[in-house]
Design a protein around this nucleic acid. Structure first.
Lengths: 339, 339
DNA sequence: CTAAAAACTGAGAGCGCTCCCATTAATTAT
DNA sequence: ATAATTAATGGGAGCGCTCTCAGTTTTTAG
């Protein structure tokens, strides 16, 4: 099975290259009978157009890049990213795009990946996971290269880029409000890294809510985590001496770790200390105690990011837009709502 | 910053297109002085060669595909795959390849992805995760398309393809031997799906070892799981009535679930029932009881797969080869080795 | 039945690069 | 110094497609 070209098919079907091209691309202005004949030849020969040639001629690669700039550990420890990736891959497939994955972990990675991502003829657009330290540079780089771009998560400087996010502040607020409503008095929090916008925003939601309800905000009840299970565990150990009766944890993964620490300290959940997490990934229901958590639509987040990007690519839309998806508090056992 | 071409650079540097091409590709036969001048122009203009044009002319895309054919749930529930992906992405980056990710979940996905993967001009080669139901079709398809191919994991029919794997049978055997050595009498197992080669091989290792040691193999002590936490949990519940004093679980994720079931049944680990897992992913050490497990070098597995593939691509090697990586039993608390 | 409009088809000029080959310049040997 | 090598350059012919435009056929209108 030697490599076939448009020309070969044309010859076999007794038409011109142009006509075959029209058929392949499903363009109008081809007589039904001719179209059938060409289709038949394509079918018989198993012809597939050459992607590179098509990209070169049309200046469209039908490939989008997913750029995940992350510190090694956070990345594959938190199932959030695999889920996001899945949503994105799913949408790419649906819209007939190919997904190129770029995991940036080290500075060397950066140096190799940056030029590749902005190189013409490879990608039609890029989705960048943002809100992390150093995303500014990447985003600026991509804008300079005139790349279609959608940022997943709120970047630190959000002017001039399209991004998609959830309302982290209010989502966190809903979780904390719920704990207040249940009558907890000493509500602590384990935040995400405060060099990330998610970390910052969820923490802000926590503080804002306490203030609005006339509660005092105790520094000792706020501990920073790193979105890992182990981070949640250690953060909880720091929190323990200050005897919180409820903790809002900024991710499910950290919540699992925090609950482990509480259990090891002989505390009963939610009797002695209640927990609310964030994400509602499968792990939330896999612990001994089902986790009350803020559900964010991760898959849909990925899908929407792709749709936004494709819109930009195909319609040449350049005005930055932002999409904020809804979250929902899912009440299970760990918050003690039943008492 | 309009799109620059080789020709533009050539003009600015006062040389020909060919010379610039030589410089860009780091070819010999360019006078040092000229090379510097060209490099300077490239630097100043921020020129990057067009990927599609290069691919078309050289018939090499410097892109490899990772094809993950999996049922939705297993995939992102088990951190194994993200880790594998990471290893592969890392190696791609190191060798200056771009990684295209294809997640196949449904039959529709398949229909869209298959032609795209085998289309000329997009990928130089493909890594397929195998050992799952239906991989035969994909592999056959790829071979027909004359694609460079490396299979990750042992495929059901392994003749004529290069693959990389670990020795699952003996790895499982080492785990079970360890339990026998510790004096356990009723050793059960939670297997992977028996329509997968990993599931089959690890189960075989379990059975083989019991037989070799003159132990009886009880069907009721063998339960099939699905590589998910929940699957491990339910499998353990089925095992419980038959009172195993030790269980070899075919993945860490399932082991976590199994231990949860044991704990809920009021059993002490490892006092009442001991566990050995498989994988040694981070979760193994995140449980209350540190998991004894068979370590497999997941990252290295991914790296090696890429290296094999690149070797095939760049050296035109076509003789199928197989690489088997070593595993190692990591002894922690859950097997009760300390007693 | 002819003229105007619409539908269809094919030729040609790129897209931006690589790679072979012919040419010219710089070395080395005679 | 000149001839024979070797190194350095430029030109040209593709890679396999898309897309415009001109030419041809068919349809519809007058």
């Amino acid at each position: 099975m030697t490599d076939l070209t448009l020309e070969d098919i044309a010859k076999q079907a007794g038409v011109s290259r142009s006509t075959v091209s029209r058929v392949v691309n499903n363009y109008p202005n081809v007589r039904g009978e001719v179209r059938q004949r060409v289709l038949q030849v394509i079918e018989n020969t198993g012809y597939h157009p050459n992607a590179a040639a098509r990209t070169l001629a049309s200046q469209r690669s039908w490939t989008i890049g997913l750029l995940l700039p992350l510190s090694v550990s956070i990345f594959f420890t938190d199932p959030y990213y695999p889920h996001l990736t899945k949503g994105i891959a799913q949408a790419c497939n649906q819209y007939n795009y190919t997904l190129a994955l770029f995991l940036v972990e080290t500075r060397e990675d950066e140096e190799k990946i940056f030029p590749r991502v902005s190189r013409k003829g490879l990608l039609d657009g890029v989705i960048v996971q943002a809100g992390h330290h150093g995303d500014q540079q990447i985003i600026g780089h991509l804008i300079d290269a005139n790349m279609s771009l959608v940022v997943a998560g709120r970047p630190f400087r959000s002017d001039n880029v399209s991004y998609i996010d959830i309302d982290n502040v209010n989502a966190a607020a809903s979780a904390v409000s719920h704990l207040i409503r249940l009558g907890y008095q000493r509500i602590g929090t384990i935040t995400g890294p405060t060099n990330s916008t998610v970390g910052l925003d969820r923490k802000e939601g926590y503080i804002k809510t306490l203030r609005e309800r006339g509660r005092s905000v105790e520094d000792s009840l706020i501990v920073e985590g790193d979105f890992t299970e182990a981070g949640g565990y250690y953060a909880m150990q720091k929190l323990l001496p200050f005897k919180p009766d409820a903790v809002f944890v900024a991710s499910d993964t950290m919540a699992i770790g925090a609950m482990r620490a509480a259990r090891e300290a002989g505390l009963n959940i939610p009797g002695d200390v209640a927990f609310v997490g964030f994400d509602d990934l499968p792990i939330a229901t896999l612990s001994n105690i089902q986790l009350t958590t803020v559900r964010q639509p991760v898959i849909q987040f990925g899908v929407k990011a792709v749709e936004l990007l494709i819109d930009q690519i195909e319609n040449g839309i350049t005005t930055p837009c932002r999409v904020i998806l809804d979250t929902e508090l899912v009440i299970r056992q760990s918050c003690g709502a039943t008492r």
